[in-house]
Design a binder for these strands. Structure first.
Length: 549
RNA sequence: GGGCCCGUAGCUCAGCUGGAUAGAGCAGGGGAUUUCUAAUCCCCAGGUCGGGGGUUCGAGUCCCUCCGGGCCCGCCA
């Protein structure tokens, strides 16, 4: 709807003033009296046209009045406030019911463009924690929306299975193994002390017995590296699947080395004279491309840095033909963005090809107190624990409660509670109530479905609250579309919450299925449409829309 | 010392590329139940948008500066 009106305004501006203008906004104004929609276009034009906003607005308003779409167009304090005809809203809502929300809101924005979204990508050296889970859900929902709008999405997880950390994982497991076998072996200083390491070591004992004792230390640690990696990955996959998050590609960092891609990018950068040697290490001149300083890509001990393989990885992504790549990173990586972008620039990859978004950490509260996580002691709240405690729906919903780049707090007690304090239940309950109305309609009037001519009933709706619900439902398409550009899937949660609030209020003050069959039919039809929207929106979030609770 | 993010009601946060009289939930106070599930609703109270300066017709939003908080800044990943 917004888009339709923005288009209309553009046309009006062009035919009235002969200029193209697209910087203006069409928005739902804060105050009800300011129209269904409002635009600031007159302010923007007043500068270039050297006329007052009022003058510009008056001319535009008159033009727009003739479009047949509005019941009223007026200029107030320079804003053009527009009321859309009731029958237009009703017609839109009716077609939403008839076609279904997915047909109604579908737009082929992506046109099949290949886009890769890389998210989670947690190191396979420990269980997923809450921040990873948040990234998983945000990424997944973002992908759902992009797919809906016609992008060919690849969901990808980058597995850091190379480098020192996996060696440490292997060593930690080996140390626990030796411990279990009654041998003394020092636990590595920087090793992973979590309970899961011991679990893996126990699995090895169960499967292989004392087999490792007959190997050299090096061979045994190698074995533990491989065994540990696959065990960790298996757990990570399970944790994600329990949240209904699935990846198309699990990309191995190691494979970049095996395929010679790391050497290849370094060779390319060398040819461009962007690599130099200093103190036995190899440096990339990232400072030439906006980074604060140059960065090491091969250490003096001959090992490559993580940065080196990451350049190769993104180079590889580019060669796979993705038109755009979206990375969701933990907030502790924000300093890294500039470095990577510098490298991509050096490789002549367009600047806007890579978009990076950050996911902030999640804090857990219980009985009003924060549950502190400590990686050092190996004790922290894992994603698995939270999922087991509050369930998939609540986890997904809560992770979508805020913009992903702001820290999130979750109070476990509240989420487990079945009351209005719990937003998950609040929203799901609204849907369940809508289903309850369908049941009542059947019990009382034997009506099981909408008749062919259901639209005429919508005309009988006379309450302001009913129109508010209809308007908001129709405009959900606009909010969803914005996610494509702004990458902020939490707006779905806000929409559902607002919608639920409007509905609960309506439900409380008006009988929906009552003595008057016509009014009952009208309100039932309204509810049907709302239910459609709720199921549609919840589906994007990957949260159940329960029939009853 | 450098970089990034944040500071909005007691708490957790919305506030859309600057727009009209700053919003919601929770917590606090008061009310609604012969129900289509009260897992709900209604009302009240609560603010120098961290301070100061600037740009602008207009600033919570942009710029500068200061204060406060978080994260990053290794030849770790």
């Amino acid at each position: 709807m917004k888009e339709r009106i923005a288009h209309l305004i553009k046309e009006a501006v062009e035919s009235l003033f002969g200029v193209k203008e697209s910087r203006f906004r069409v928005e739902v104004p804060r105050e009800k009296g300011w129209g269904d929609l409002s635009t600031n276009v007159a302010f923007i034009l007043s500068k270039s046209l050297k006329k007052s906003p009022k003058e510009v607005g008056d001319v535009l308003a008159e033009y727009l009045s003739d479009a047949g779409l509005f019941s009223d167009v007026r200029v107030e304090k320079g804003f053009i406030n527009m009321d859309i005809k009731r029958e237009v809203w009703i017609k839109e809502f009716a077609s939403l019911i008839r076609e279904g929300a997915d047909r109604k809101f579908q737009k082929n924005i992506g046109k099949g463009e290949k886009v890769q979204v890389e998210f989670v990508s947690a190191n396979p050296t420990g269980p997923l924690h809450l921040g990873h889970g948040r990234g998983a859900v945000v990424g997944d929902v973002l992908c759902n929306v992009l797919e809906f709008f016609g992008y060919a999405i690849t969901r990808e997880y980058y597995v850091n299975d190379a480098g020192n950390q996996v060696y440490l994982l292997g060593k930690s497991i080996y140390a626990r193994y030796m411990e279990l076998m009654g041998k003394s072996y020092p636990f590595p200083e920087e090793g992973y002390r979590g309970e899961y390491i011991r679990d893996i070591a126990e699995d090895i004992v169960r499967e292989k017995g004392d087999m490792l004792l007959s190997l050299s230390e090096e061979e045994a640690v190698d074995f533990c590296v491989e065994y540990g990696l696959s065990a960790m990955l298996k757990r990570i996959k399970e944790d994600l699947e329990d949240l209904d998050v699935h990846f198309d590609v699990w990309f191995s960092e190691r494979s970049l080395y095996d395929r010679g891609l790391v050497d290849e990018v370094i060779r390319i950068l060398k040819e461009k004279d962007l690599i130099y040697e200093k103190e036995g290490a190899l440096w990339f001149k990232s400072s030439l491309f906006g980074d604060d300083k140059d960065r090491v890509i091969r250490k003096s001990d001959g090992n490559y840095t993580y940065f080196a393989s990451d350049i190769a990885y993104h180079y590889e992504k580019f060669s796979r033909g993705f038109k755009k790549v979206i990375n969701l990173w933990g907030a502790d990586h924000h300093g890294y963005e500039r470095r990577l972008k510098a490298a991509l620039k050096a490789l002549d990859i367009p600047e806007d090809w890579l978009e990076v978004y950050f996911v902030q950490m999640v804090k857990l509260f219980r009985e009003g107190k924060e549950i502190k996580m400590s990686k050092r002691s190996g004790e922290f709240v894992t994603l698995r624990e939270l999922t087991e405690e509050i369930g998939k729906d609540a986890v997904r919903f809560m992770f979508l409660m805020k913009r992903s780049d702001t820290p999130l707090s979750i109070d476990v007690d509240v989420v487990k509670e079945k009351s209005s304090e719990n937003p998950v239940f609040y929203v799901q309950y609204a849907h369940a109530r809508m289903c309850g109305i369908s049941r009542e309609m059947k019990n009382r009037y034997g009506i099981d479905n909408l008749p062919e001519d259901f639209a005429r009933y919508l005309n009988l709706l006379s309450l302001e609250e009913e129109m508010d619900l209809i308007k908001k439902a129709v405009m959900f398409g606009d909010e969803l579309t914005e996610i494509v550009y702004k990458k902020e899937p939490h707006v779905i949660t806000y929409f559902l919450y607002d919608m639920a609030s409007l509905f609960h209020s309506y439900y409380n003050s008006h009988r929906i299925v009552g003595d008057d069959i016509n009014i009952s039919m009208a309100r039932y039809t309204l509810t049907k449409g709302l239910k459609e929207i709720f199921a549609f929106a919840l589906n994007f979030m990957g949260v159940e829309a329960p029939e009853s609770m």
